[in-house]
Structure formats: C-alpha cells, structure tokens
C-alpha cells in the first residue's frame, strides 16, 4: 500500500497495436514507473510512440495488452464511465496546441475539468481557478477570451487547466513545441516551478534536448520501446559542455 502511494503511475508490459487486418505494433511492451513528485521528460524521435503512450497513460485509449496502474488503481477492468471519471479526477492534460476551448474565457477553461466532472461550478471552483491562473502569471487575464491571448499565454492557461482540479499526474505532449524559444523556456520553467512548489507529478513529452536535460529524469523511447540513454542518444555520452 505504501509502495502504491509513492507510485503515481505504473505501466506494465504495455503493448499497443493499431489497425485491423494489417496490424501495426506501435508500443512493444513498455514498463515504466513514476514516483509522486517527479518531473520526467519522455524523449524520442517523431513516430516513436510518445503520444500513443501518453494517450494510454491518460486513459484516452486502452492498451492492447498490459496494465496501467494509476495511483494504485489498476485501470484494465474499468468500463468507459469509470475510465472517464478516473481520467477526470487523476489526469491533467497539456497538449502541443493548447487545445483550449475558444468559446470560453481563460477562467472558464480552467474551471472546465472540475465543472465537467461535478456537473456544477461552485464559487470555490471559480476562486481556485483564478488562483491557479495567478500562479501561472495570468491573474489579470482571467476574464479574457482565450483567443485574445498570445501563444505563450494560451499554453499557460492550458497548464492552469491541467492543474486546477489537483490531478495526481499531469501529462504534457510537446507543450512547448509550438512556441518560440523564449516562450518555451518560460512555459517549461513554469511547469518546473509548479512541480517543485506544489509537488505535482509531470510527464512531459518533448523533442527539445535542452528542456529534457532540465527535468529530474529523462525517459528515452525509440520504435515503441524504452531504451537506455546511451543507445538512444550517443551524443549524451560525452556529457554536457
């Protein structure tokens, strides 16, 4: 039990195939564990299965075989309604393209996950949303339509949305991939600060070695397998500098 509490995520022998008839195996038996409070980077070439893995971990999709255990709960046998509930409660998503809802304000976007799960928006939820927006440096823009915000600001709102319902695990799929270097640094630093100060567990997919190196842990994936850093990135052998 104590062991389960320390581990936010355990991925066991997860295989994912796509297609019927001609089946493509995208993930070949992934094993992975994340401890509470980790900030981990998932790095690998395009098409290596990063998003696929994130979707499985985020319960947006189901593995072909293997188990995904979130906060000690085995998710294999849950039905769709239970999956939706668990996803809403445990997971926060940040996507490459912010994927905010353009019809809503920053604050409304941030409230959305709690609102969608509860069915009602309480004053407390709204207050908390504004607080989280302030924490990502957008205290003044709560009432702004997300379409009025810059790319970096939008991604901060997306981070606030991922955090506001206090998920056990935030999954970020190339959250800085669509930003210029300066904004990317800012957004990443924000996640690092939130990780440090709030203890939120992050799994961040990135192409960017610079960003990966600033994470507490780097997980390399290649052709649907977790690989040792030496084999994945020979350049890293020489070390920085």
């Amino acid at each position: 039990m104590a062991d389960e509490e320390a581990s936010v995520l355990r991925v066991e022998r997860v295989v994912k195939d796509f297609g019927e008839g001609i089946v493509t195996r995208v993930l070949h038996g992934i094993d992975l564990e994340l401890a509470r409070g980790e900030l981990a980077a998932l790095i690998g070439p395009s098409g290596s299965g990063k998003s696929t893995l994130l979707n499985l971990v985020g319960l947006l999709d189901r593995p072909t075989s293997g188990r995904i255990v979130l906060s000690g709960r085995d998710t294999s046998d849950l039905d769709d309604e239970e999956i939706t509930l668990l996803r809403g409660r445990l997971i926060g998503f940040v996507f490459q393209f912010h994927h905010l809802l353009p019809a809503f304000t920053a604050e409304e976007n941030v409230v959305l996950p709690s609102f969608a799960q509860e069915g009602w928006a309480s004053a407390e939820m709204r207050r908390h949303a504004v607080e989280v927006l302030a924490a990502v440096g957008l205290g003044g823009r709560a009432k702004a339509r997300v379409t009025e915000l810059s790319g970096g600001q939008q991604q901060r709102v997306a981070i606030a949305r991922a955090l506001a319902h206090r998920p056990a695990l935030v999954l970020a799929d190339e959250p800085t991939g669509n930003l210029d270097t300066a904004s990317a640094d800012e957004v990443f630093e924000l996640m690092r600060t939130l990780n440090r100060e709030r203890g939120t567990t992050f799994l961040v997919v990135t192409h960017d070695e610079r960003i990966a190196e600033r994470c507490g842990r780097i997980i390399h994936i290649r052709d649907g397998r977790i690989v040792e850093p030496e084999r994945a990135a020979p350049r890293a052998l020489g070390g920085p500098g």
């Binding site: 939706t84 996803r87 994927h99 996950p113 969608a116 799960q117 949305r161």
Partner: peptide, 12 residues
C-alpha cells in the same frame, strides 16, 4: 473540442 471535453472528464 468535444475530444478535449471528454479528455478533461466529461462523460459521453
């Protein structure tokens, strides 16, 4: 957007 709504926990 519907996908996002589902992702953040709204049921079908």
């Amino acid at each position: 957007e519907i996908g996002i709504l589902r992702a953040v926990g709204s049921s079908s």
